[in-house]
C-alpha cells in the first residue's frame, strides 16, 4: 500500500528488508536477528556447560527446571523413556529457539535501531518468525523428521503402503487423501506460526500508530502470550506428529500376529 502522506507512514512488508549484500548474498534484518538468537543460545549453553556445579546457581537452576519439565512432558506424550530421549533434542531446540526469537522482540529499544536505506529507514532487527523463509525451513525440518521416523518404523514398503492401498476403492481414496494431509502439514504448521507472529507485529504497529500511549499495552500482553503459546504449539505438534508416525497401528499388529 503506497503511503499517501509523508507523516502517515506504516512500514509494513511481508518480505524482510535487505540491509546489505555480502558478494551476491542478501543479508536481511531477520537473518541478523536469528543469528543473534542462535549466538545467544549457544553462548548460554557453553556458559552452563563449563560452570556445572553440584550445588547449582541461579542460571543452572532455571535451565535444569526447563530441561526436566520439558523432558517429562515429552515422555508423557510419547509414552516411553527410550523414544523420548531420541525426540527430546529436536523438541527442545525448536521450542527454545522459537521461544527466544519471539520473546526477545519485546525487548524495548531495538525497534529504534535502523539503517538509512533508499526508501526510508530500514530496521536492523525483525522478528525471525515474521520471515516466512525461516518458518518454512523449521517446518520442513519437522515434517521431514516425521517422514523419516515413519519410514524407519514401518519400513519403506509399509510407509508407501499407507498411501497406496489397493484393497478396496475406499481405502485407495483414503490413501490419496493421506498424501494431501502430509502436504497440508507443511502449510498448516508454517502458516500458523508465521501468521500469528507477523499479525502480532502488524497489530502492535497499527495500534502504536493510532494511539501511541497505554492502548497498545494490552495488545503487547496478548503478543507475549501468543509468542509463548505458539512456540509451545509448534514444538508440541512436531512431537505429536512424530508420536503418531512412530506408533504401530492395531491392524498392523493383527496382521503381524496372523502371519
Amino acid at each position: 500500500m503506497p503511503a499517501t502522506n509523508k507523516y502517515m507512514e506504516l512500514n509494513i512488508s511481508i518480505a524482510p528488508d535487505i540491509l546489505f549484500y555480502i558478494r551476491s548474498f542478501p543479508v536481511t534484518n531477520s537473518l541478523i536477528w536469528s543469528l543473534a538468537i542462535s549466538g545467544f543460545l549457544i553462548a548460554i549453553t557453553f556458559v552452563i556447560r563449563f560452570s556445572l556445579k553440584t550445588v547449582p546457581g541461579k542460571l543452572q537452576n532455571i535451565t535444569e527446571i526447563i530441561i526436566e519439565e520439558s523432558f517429562s512432558f515429552v515422555r508423557s506424550v510419547i509414552g516411553s523413556e527410550e523414544k523420548a530421549k531420541k525426540v527430546f533434542p529436536l523438541f527442545c531446540t525448536l521450542f527454545l529457539f522459537i521461544l527466544t526469537a519471539n520473546v526477545f522482540t519485546f525487548i524495548p529499544g531495538q525497534a529504534a535501531l535502523s539503517l538509512r536505506g533508499g526508501n526510508g529507514p530500514l530496521p536492523v532487527f525483525r522478528a525471525a518468525m515474521a520471515d516466512y523463509g525461516m518458518v518454512l525451513v523449521l517446518t520442513m525440518i519437522s515434517v521431514l523428521t516425521v517422514q523419516i521416523v515413519a519410514i524407519a518404523v514401518h519400513g519403506p514398503f509399509g510407509y508407501l503402503g499407507k498411501f497406496f492401498n489397493f484393497q478396496s476403492p475406499l481405502k485407495f481414496f483414503l490413501g490419496l487423501m493421506d498424501i494431501v494431509g502430509e502436504l497440508a502439514k507443511v502449510l498448516s504448521l508454517s502458516f500458523r506460526l508465521f501468521g500469528n507472529i507477523f499479525a502480532g507485529e502488524v497489530l502492535g504497529m497499527v495500534m502504536l500508530f493510532l494511539i501511541p500511549f497505554i492502548v497498545p499495552l494490552p495488545f503487547m500482553f496478548l503478543g507475549v502470550l501468543t509468542a509463548v503459546v505458539q512456540a509451545f504449539v509448534f514444538a508440541t505438534l512436531t512431537l505429536v506428529f512424530i508420536t503418531l508416525a512412530s506408533e504401530i497401528e492395531e491392524d498392523e499388529l493383527v496382521e503381524q500376529a496372523s502371519m
Binding site: R192, G195, N196, Q230, F232, V233
Partner: peptide, 11 residues
C-alpha cells in the same frame, strides 16, 4: 494449545 490450533484457520 487446542485454541491455538483452532485459531489457525483464522490465521
Amino acid at each position: 494449545v487446542t485454541m491455538a490450533i483452532t485459531e489457525s484457520t483464522g490465521i
